[in-house]
Computed example of a mutant assay.
Amino acid sequence: MSDLLVVAFDDEATGFELRAELVKLQSEYLIKLEDAVVVTRPSADDIQLHQAMNLTAAGALGGTFWGTLVGLLFLNPLVGAAVGAGSGALAGYLTDYGVNDDFMREVGQKVTPGGSAVFLLIREMTADKVLDRISDFHKRGRVIQTSLSNEDEGRLREALAGEGAPTVPPATSAPEANS
């Protein structure tokens, strides 16, 4: 089961920075994200969703491949590729993977104009290491909504507030051997 986490910021840049840091953590196998969307609110009337993956482009690419393959079977690969790209793009456009877009727009109304919110759908994470890394965002973010347990939510709130965030001792070098 995945957990939903929504963290809001007073500026747009910090939301994108947090998403970039979490993608980096994913490449280090510390977290598995199903979805990571930054919602910005440039003005009181406008809410924009910045998806991590463009499903329309991915659908068009996959559709082109399969359309070409089917077209080769029927001796018309160009028509197959064109039809495949069109249907793949349409399927990608109509697909709502991860967090529901309407839900993100609704919660995005709580974001202050000029601010942002990061919507995360987390499959797995090594909580202590992830919280250490995102504690750099302390005093900049606030948790709006989460499906975490009360204990984990409290730890997350502490990490973002900068209170009781674990400190890492400075690295020390090994003593040199005398020869």
Rank of each mutant, 00 (worst) to 15 (best):
S2N: 13
L4N: 07
L5V: 15
L5D: 08
F9W: 08
F9K: 08
E12K: 11
E12Y: 01
A13E: 11
A13K: 15
T14E: 09
G15W: 02
V23D: 10
Y29P: 00
E34V: 09
V39Q: 03
T40L: 02
S43Q: 07
A44H: 08
Q48R: 14
L49K: 10
H50N: 10
H50K: 05
N54V: 04
L55D: 01
A57W: 10
L61W: 03
G63P: 02
W66Q: 02
L69I: 11
L69N: 01
V70P: 01
L72N: 14
L78G: 04
V79T: 14
V79K: 08
A81M: 13
G88H: 01
G88V: 01
A89D: 02
G92V: 01
Y93I: 00
G98Y: 04
D101E: 11
D101T: 07
D102M: 03
D102C: 00
M104P: 01
M104V: 02
R105T: 06
E106G: 01
G108H: 04
P113S: 14
P113R: 11
G114D: 13
S116N: 07
V118T: 09
F119P: 06
I122F: 08
I122N: 06
R123D: 14
R123K: 14
E124K: 15
A127G: 13
L131M: 10
D132F: 14
R133G: 02
I134F: 08
D136L: 12
H138C: 13
R140G: 02
G141H: 06
V143F: 10
N150R: 15
E151K: 13
D152F: 14
E153D: 15
E158T: 12
A159I: 05
L160K: 09
G162W: 06
G164I: 08
G164E: 07
P169S: 14
P169Q: 13
P169F: 05
T172V: 14
T172F: 03
T172C: 04
S173E: 15
P175G: 06
E176N: 05
A177C: 07
